[in-house]
Nucleic acid binder design. Structure first.
Lengths: 336, 336
DNA sequence: GTGAAAGCGCTAACAT
DNA sequence: ATGTTAGCGCTTTCAC
C-alpha cells in the first residue's frame, strides 16, 4: 500500500502539495496537480482515511441509524441514502438499532462516539430524551427522517395530509362508508405515524361531512397478514359494511386486497382500497396509493446532511422542507 | 470529548496502561484495570477509532458489499451480519454495488482501499477477475456469501441439492407433471444460482425416472410479477398442464400462487407449488418452501470473518462449511 | 505490571 | 504556489 511520501517523491513535490492536490484544499498549480494525480494513479495510492481523519478531523463517513433492515420501507430509504452519499465520495456506516435496550445504549453510548463518522442520519426512530441528548452531544450534524423530534432537524412527510388525501380520494369517488385499517396502539409507542394517519383519515371524513363510525376502524400491525386479518374483520362481521378501505400502509393494503378476494368481494367493483407508501409490490396489485417516495427521502436526507457538513456560519444550511407525496391512482379504487 | 490523557491522569496511570486496560491487550493488574474503567466511564471516554486504527492498524470495522439493499433476501442477510458483528463491538460500513460499472470500480478501486475496514464480506455478487483481484489485493480477510468464487472463501448453500429436495418433495407426493419457473438466462449473467436450481430440478426428475419436458419450463426474473406471468404461461396455454410447480424463489412462487388462483386453480388441490428461500411472506401464503435461512447466512458470514481476523499462523481459521437448508412443508403442496 | 517515547500517515499552520 | 514541521490521539516496543 503506497503512502503519501512515495507519491510526493514520484511527483517531485512535498507531501503537503500531494495532500492539497488530492483533497482540493488550498492552492496548487495545475501542473503540480496533474503530476500528483498521475503519480497517485500509477502507484494505486488512495488517501488513508485513518491518517487523514486523525489529522483533519474529517472522516468522509456518515453514520446511518435504522430500526429495521428487512422492512421494505427502510431498505428503500437506506438505498437512497447510500447512492447519494456514495456519489459524493462518502462511506456510510450502519447502525441497526433493535428494540433491545442494551443494543440501543451501546450504539448511542459507544459505537457512535468512536469518532468514526462526520454526521448521523436517523431513519424513523423514536428517540427518548436521553438518546436524543446523546446524539446532540456528539457535536455532529444530525438529520432525522420521520417521527418529528423538535430537537433534531427532521425531514418529515405530512402524514396527516397524506391520509387526508387518500381519504378524500375515496370520498371523491362517492364513497361514504369508509373504514380505516391502521394504528395499533402498541405499535404507536415507537412511531407517531399511525396516529397521524388516523387523524388525517378523520379530517378527511370531516371535510366530506361524514360522521366517524367507530365500527369502521380496525387496528393492525403494518404487515401483510395484519392487513389481511383486519380486512376480514371489517368485511366479515355482521352489521354495516364499508364500500371502501383506507389502509395505513401498502403492505397492509395488499393483505386487505387478498382478504377481500377470499371473501368474494371484487376490488374495486365491490370494494375500493387505497394504501400509503409507494411499495414496490403496489404496481403488481394495481394498488392505488399515496406514494411517499422512500428512496427520495433517503437521497434528501443525504443531501441535507452534506449541506450541513458544508455549511459555514456565514452560510448556514437551510432547514429541510416537507417531504413530497403524490396520489397514485391505479386499479383498486373506483367510483361507487 | 475526553482523551486518553485525561483518563490516565484521573486513574493515576500512564496512557499506555489505559490503552492496555481498555483493549485487553497486554498485562494490567486487576486494580489498575478497575480504576481505568471507572475513570473512563466517569469521563464518558470512548477510544477514538481514528487514532486507535492509525496506531494499531485495526479499525474494528467490517466492509459489507451488497448488490441490492431493497430486496428481502439481501436485507435479511445484512441484518444477520449486522447483529452478529455488533455483538462483537464491530461497526459495519456498507457498500452498495449497483450494475453501474463506474460505481463498481469506484468501490473496488477507491472506497475499499481507504483503510477503513479490517475485513470484507461480499454478499452474492458475481465478481469478475479484476474485481476479485482487487479484493484480494486489499490484503484483508474476505468472506463471500453465495455465487462460489474459487479464489474467495465462500459460504455457499448447495443450490443443486436445494432444488433437488424441492423437486423430490413433489415427486414424493405423486406428481410427475412438474414444471419449473426459474433461470432467466439474462439474470444468470450475475448469479449462477438460477442455473444450479435448474440443474437440481433436472436431477430430481431424473431420480424419479421422469423425463424432462421442455414445455414445462418458464423463465422469469425473480420478482412476484415475474412469477405471476410465468405461471400464467405455464397454466394457461394449450397442451399438457403441470400438476405441480417448482419455483426457484419464494417471491416468484407467491406470484405463481396468485396466478393459479386467478386462473381458477385451487392450490394445492389442483396444483402444488413449492418455492425456495424462506421469505417472510411464505407464512402468510402458507407456502411450502426450502428455507435457506438468510439471516443465519449473514450471522455465519460475520462469524467466519471474525474467525479469520482472530486467526494466527499457528491456528488458522477453518474453511467455512456448507450452509444449511430445510424443507418447510406448509399448505401449498399436497398429494396428487 | 508499568511508564517513556517513538511512531502510525496524514493535514494545516506558518514561512518563504 | 510550495515546503517545513508540528501535531492529531492513540498503540506498542523497550526498559525497568
Amino acid at each position: 500500500m503506497a503512502s503519501i511520501d512515495e507519491v510526493a517523491r514520484l511527483a517531485g513535490v512535498s507531501t503537503a502539495t500531494v495532500s492539497r492536490a488530492l483533497s482540493g484544499r488550498g492552492q496548487v498549480s495545475e501542473a503540480a496537480r496533474e503530476r500528483v494525480r498521475k503519480a497517485a494513479q500509477s502507484l494505486g495510492y488512495v488517501v488513508s482515511s485513518r491518517a487523514s481523519s486523525l489529522a483533519s478531523g474529517r472522516t468522509r463517513n456518515v453514520g446511518v441509524v435504522v430500526p429495521f433492515l428487512d422492512r421494505w420501507f427502510f431498505s428503500a430509504v437506506l438505498s437512497g441514502v447510500s447512492s447519494a452519499l456514495m456519489r459524493h465520495g462518502y462511506d456510510i456506516t450502519l447502525y441497526n438499532i433493535t428494540a433491545d435496550s442494551d443494543v440501543r445504549s451501546e450504539v448511542f453510548g459507544t459505537f457512535l462516539r468512536r469518532q468514526r463518522v462526520d454526521a448521523v442520519i436517523a431513519v424513523s426512530i423514536e428517540l427518548d430524551a436521553d438518546e436524543t441528548q446523546q446524539l446532540l452531544d456528539l457535536g455532529l450534524p444530525v438529520i432525522a427522517i420521520g417521527g418529528p423530534n423538535p430537537k433534531l432537524d427532521t425531514l418529515t412527510v405530512d402524514d396527516v395530509a397524506l391520509a387526508q388525501l387518500a381519504t378524500e380520494h375515496l370520498i371523491g369517488l362517492g364513497h361514504r362508508d369508509i373504514a380505516h385499517i391502521g394504528a395499533n396502539p402498541e405499535f404507536d409507542l415507537d412511531f407517531h405515524i399511525p396516529t397521524n394517519r388516523r387523524l388525517g383519515f378523520e379530517k378527511g371524513l370531516a371535510s366530506g361531512g361524514i360522521p366517524l363510525n367507530p365500527v369502521f376502524f380496525e387496528p393492525a400491525d403494518f404487515t401483510v397478514s395484519g392487513g389481511y386479518r383486519a380486512a376480514k374483520q371489517l368485511l366479515g362481521r355482521p352489521g354495516p359494511r364499508p364500500t371502501a378501505l383506507f389502509v395505513a400502509s401498502d403492505e397492509m393494503a395488499i393483505g386487505a386486497i387478498l382478504a377481500a378476494r377470499d371473501l368474494g368481494f371484487r376490488v374495486p367493483q365491490d370494494l375500493s382500497i387505497v394504501g400509503i407508501d409507494g411499495h414496490e409490490l403496489g404496481e403488481f396489485f394495481q394498488l392505488t396509493t399515496v406514494d411517499q417516495f422512500p428512496l427520495g427521502q433517503g437521497e434528501r436526507a443525504a443531501e441535507a446532511v452534506l449541506a450541513k457538513l458544508a455549511a459555514t456560519d456565514a452560510a448556514p444550511a437551510r432547514t429541510p422542507a416537507a417531504l413530497p407525496y403524490e396520489l397514485n391512482v391505479r386499479g383498486t379504487t373506483a367510483r361507487l
